[in-house]
Nucleic acid binder design. Structure first.
Lengths: 222, 222
DNA sequence: GTCTATACCCAGATAGAC
DNA sequence: GTCTATCTGGGTATAGAC
């Protein structure tokens, strides 16, 4: 007992390590989102998670490694969310779910969305391979589904790519351009405004491709 | 005559200065777009316009001054483009023109759009006042117009804000996320693809708010 | 007006005590 | 594992020759 280094409960050290890493990643996500990779400093990230700067280098070998981990974590969340675009559902259900989920992500993961946008805008130097593998695969399966819907006459004849880009951009805009939106709104969006915005995006897109968009034809309320 | 410093044609020096400044601004726009403010270096900008680094400081007192000038220039182009949203026209014409113009800007001013997006994503530290003055004024006049259209029954009842954000995001996406789009497309978009994307965006949005969107009801082909 | 050489500072990374 | 002190590279900005 006393000040000599004692025993730890098995696993507690590893758990603690994970916890600290998560804290650093969260802080890093916010700082990278607000300042960009070049503008962010290890000092600022360290301050944000109340750790000495040197500790960050103990857990992550370099600034770039840390950044890469942040981006990878976001990409994973993104891909999982993408599953809400169920390829088995009807167009109404699939699109409504997907748009709603993406709006929710924009609200709950604003910083993640910004880091992702930043990364892509700068030419995706870190995650370029993900774009060419995971994202491309995901996109191609959805394109095929949308094509089928068109062929069956369930929706108008649209190029699936432009439709997907439209969904991505409109939903992510609420995270990436949150500052502009909140400035024009003179404050953060209320719960009601989020619902209203989500509903509007759903309706315009669904009606735009020939569905009635009222959300009353087979979609269970979420 | 000879090597002693001679006369200049009136205005030629000033013209030259403007030319050099424009060259620096163009180079800076590209570098800032690709690297962000923090990631960009004066050296990289100097290289891009084939000038020694010190000359940049002769024409622009600091990196931040240069950046500010770049952002202001973009904002001006943006606002001018905004005039294509003519408040006097019918919804079909006004929206179609505005969307088309914004798509064109995304294609022709990719870097400018990226710098703007970057600036807003990082909380608009430089142009925050523009958001609260010029942009807010512009937005409010358009909101009023869209409200009127709704009231007259010309378009469905939508919150004008969400509609505007939708137009901004979908069109700017083609500039800001160009890298992602081109990766999925395995190359830059062709002329035909730009036309097709523009047409799709117009149709989905116009139909989405209750217009027929076929572009054949009063809009002269541009 | 133009450019080379340099001052100065700050940020990423590490050494080494605890 | 944690933290202080320090090294080092690179970036902004400027001094001063031409």
């Amino acid at each position: 007992m006393g000040h000599r280094d004692g025993f730890e409960k098995p696993g507690s050290r590893a758990e603690n390590r994970e916890e600290i890493e998560r804290a650093i990643l969260n802080a890093a996500e916010e700082v990278f989102a607000q300042k960009g990779f070049g503008g962010a400093t290890m000092q600022a990230i360290a301050d944000a998670c109340h750790l000495p700067k040197a500790n960050l280098h103990y857990y992550f070998s370099s600034k770039e490694t840390l950044y890469r981990r942040v981006v990878e974590r976001i990409f994973t969340i993104w891909l999982e969310a993408a599953d809400s675009f169920e390829t088995s559902a009807t167009p109404d259900v699939a699109l409504r779910r997907y748009i709603t989920r993406k709006m929710q992500l924009s609200r709950e993961h604003r910083y993640g969305s910004k880091v992702w946008a930043n990364e892509v805008m700068h030419g995706a130097p870190i995650i370029h391979d993900y774009l060419e593998t995971s994202l491309r695969r995901w996109t191609e399966t959805r394109i095929a589904v949308i094509r089928r819907w068109s062929a069956e006459g369930a929706i108008h004849d649209v190029d699936p790519r432009w439709l997907l880009y439209m969904i991505w951009s409109t939903t992510q805009h609420y995270a990436d351009f949150a500052h502009q939106i909140e400035t024009l709104n003179q404050g953060p969006l209320s719960d009601a405004q989020w619902v209203s915005a989500t509903e509007t995006v759903c309706q315009i897109i669904l009606r735009g491709i020939g569905l009635n968009g009222d959300g009353l034809d087979g979609v269970a309320p979420l």
